[in-house]
Design a protein around this nucleic acid. Structure first.
Length: 287
DNA sequence: ATGCCTGAAGGGTTCAGA
């Protein structure tokens, strides 16, 4: 089973890159972030193209910003739009959607940016991460959290730590919040596979940052032990960042071996959907 | 240049992103 996560920075603008990428990489499950599109517009834009490729999808978007989705061709059950217990800014934002795909509880996540350290948005980010930690702590044994965490876990995950002093994504409270999330029993599967490689997932559009490989690793795949133990490959698809009209993020792709019989714990039924949960779900046989 | 690109909404510009 191949699972991927990609902050597409407007799915509307990224259609000419997204569809060929699906055809080339053939992921079974795709977590998307920064759709920047309302749910009905997402379905209008991609419904037929995804259905033709046998993807079911669950989109949770907004008109202008944010927005997350899960595409799956290995099942899409018990969809929950939003993160239960998460704060808003001031209203709840479309930053999380979860579903059970191929026996694994999958979440597509877009952690708030934080803007400036100690700003209101920064504290919102920390509170949102605490809610994410609580969700992960209550999740089943076979769980994978994918998305734009907007935190570089370590100094090795930015091109120059000195360039980020005093900025978000690298501050101690953000990293501590990520540590508390990891401590519920999650593995950073890309870093564990490549312990000392220079790996980035985001490069600023400006000043040729990508071509100089001056970036950050902020898009993460975090898996519980039963899932992490199945990882056969984990890599950043830099090719998708090249060429015409790319996102400023590259996809992260993880291949899982077949689940051994009896070795994967039951997927704990998700909590009931939070009130106000929105989202658009369509299964491939629906049309 | 202290946002060097890119995208969205809405309107002739401003905000957001990391």
């Amino acid at each position: 089973m191949r699972i991927a996560t990609w902050n597409v920075n407007s799915v509307k603008q990224r259609v000419p890159r997204l569809l060929p990428w699906l055809d080339q990489r053939q992921p079974d499950v795709v977590c998307l972030q920064e759709l920047k599109l309302a749910d009905d517009a997402f379905e209008e834009l991609l419904g037929e193209e995804l259905t033709a490729r046998r993807y079911a999808f669950a989109a949770h978007g907004e008109v202008q910003w944010n927005g997350v989705a899960i595409l799956s061709r290995v099942g899409l059950d018990d969809v929950i739009a939003g993160l239960p217990g998460a704060p808003g800014f001031p209203h709840p934002e479309a930053r999380a959607v979860s579903a059970t795909c191929g026996g694994i509880r999958v979440s597509s996540l877009y952690v708030p940016n934080g803007r400036e350290p100690d700003s209101e948005h920064y504290h919102y980010k920390l509170a949102w991460l605490a809610a994410l930690r609580d969700m992960a702590a209550a999740a089943g044994e076979a769980t994978i959290l994918c998305g734009d965490m907007n935190i570089a876990p370590a100094d090795a995950d930015v091109f120059d730590p000195a360039a980020y002093v005093g900025q978000t994504h690298v501050t101690a409270p953000e990293r501590a919040a990520l540590t508390r999330l990891m401590e519920v029993g999650l593995h950073d599967v890309v870093r564990e596979r490549w312990p000392s490689e220079r790996i980035f997932t985001y490069w600023d559009y400006r000043a040729g940052m990508f071509h100089q490989d001056l970036g950050m690793r902020i898009d993460l795949v975090l898996a519980t032990e039963p899932v992490a133990g199945r990882v056969k490959a984990a890599w950043v698809d830099r090719h998708a960042r090249k060429g015409t009209g790319p996102s400023d993020h590259a996809p992260v792709i993880v291949d899982l071996d077949t689940a051994p019989d009896g070795d994967i714990g039951p997927v704990v039924p998700p909590p009931s959907a939070p009130s106000g949960a929105r989202g658009r779900v369509r299964l491939p046989q629906a049309r």
